[in-house]
Design a binder for these strands. Sequence first.
DNA 1: TGAACCATGTAAGCAGTTACATGATTCA
DNA 2: TGAATCATGTAACTGCTTACATGGTTCA
Lengths: 184, 184
Amino acid sequence: MKKYNHTTYAILGILTTGCRSGYDIKQLIDRSLNHFWKISYGQIYPTLKTMVEDGLAEVQTSSQKGKPDRNEYFLTSKGVETLKSWLEEPIQQIPGERNEILLKLFFGRFQSKESTVSLLEEYKQQLENRYLTYVSIEQAISKSNEEDKDSFYWLITLDYGKRVTKAAIEWCISTLEQISDQEV
Amino acid sequence: MKKYNHTTYAILGILTTGCRSGYDIKQLIDRSLNHFWKISYGQIYPTLKTMVEDGLAEVQTSSQKGKPDRNEYFLTSKGVETLKSWLEEPIQQIPGERNEILLKLFFGRFQSKESTVSLLEEYKQQLENRYLTYVSIEQAISKSNEEDKDSFYWLITLDYGKRVTKAAIEWCISTLEQISDQEV
DNA sequence: TGAACCATGTAAGCAGTTACATGATTCA
DNA sequence: TGAATCATGTAACTGCTTACATGGTTCA
């Protein structure tokens, strides 16, 4: 089985949800997977093209009144198989997140205490905003479709985001305390 | 002030620690910043070259007996200024970590319960190994140089890694429970 | 003998972002 | 009138990884 990149697998998965066009795919990822996956049109359209060439999907162009033409993509059985076999594969390596804040902090000696503190406070603020976003998405899902089997997995990914973000916020608080306790 | 990429700032920072050669830089990053920053020789050597061209650093080639020639790099005052001004800059955007496990889980409907479980168990195992690595690095630092000012910032970055990893482990445990509680 | 360490570098290629190009409709 | 939405696509560029190329020393 040929190997594809993550973008291909992500699109393969999205096409199972009823999304059909490149535009739809972008919308869905931005709205629902945004906390752990991002994508740009510069990836989507060329990937859809090669997917058709490789027989993972088929296109149908439909004209709409008042709107541009729409290319609708449908998974072939080969496409479904490719998705399933990727899902069964174990994860090779867990992500070693690159973190700019930690990099700056690592060179903290060269920074004034004030700018280290404001760096951390801004980071904390951004994390708190992110946390609140997760909570509101979570509430929206819980309200809407309770019996949906999809929403179970969706809530699990949000839970991950919440837990990790919360831990990072607590680290900010603890670090800010440690810095203010330092001898001047 | 000209903008440089993150790799340049990372190397600029590393050169303040007494590391001199491209080889040294790679060693230090692999050993000490590995949990939040990675780098390859394919980035290091070309970046050092452009840093010299831009007057951020100067080279000195030294011959050693029994070992290959060594190019040693020294920051110029322009280099130090560039580093400092980057450190003072606020962070534009916090990292939206791409997470393959969450992507697979998002399409969990297409997976058997067994393979979802083994996916999570393997992930948990990897996170636990990572956690233990952090703890052992932490102990090594605490023992060696207690009065060092650098080690304060170093320990802080490790604390971040520990907290976030622990939160992810707890998410794995909770998710595994939820999946086994699901009606069959 | 062969692995590991020391040491530097280039080239090919993949992944991803951003800017550009086009253009109709709807709504405030 | 002008912003937002719908809709597709390309080109240039940045960043990064991996493979390749070279070659001496040290240690088990």
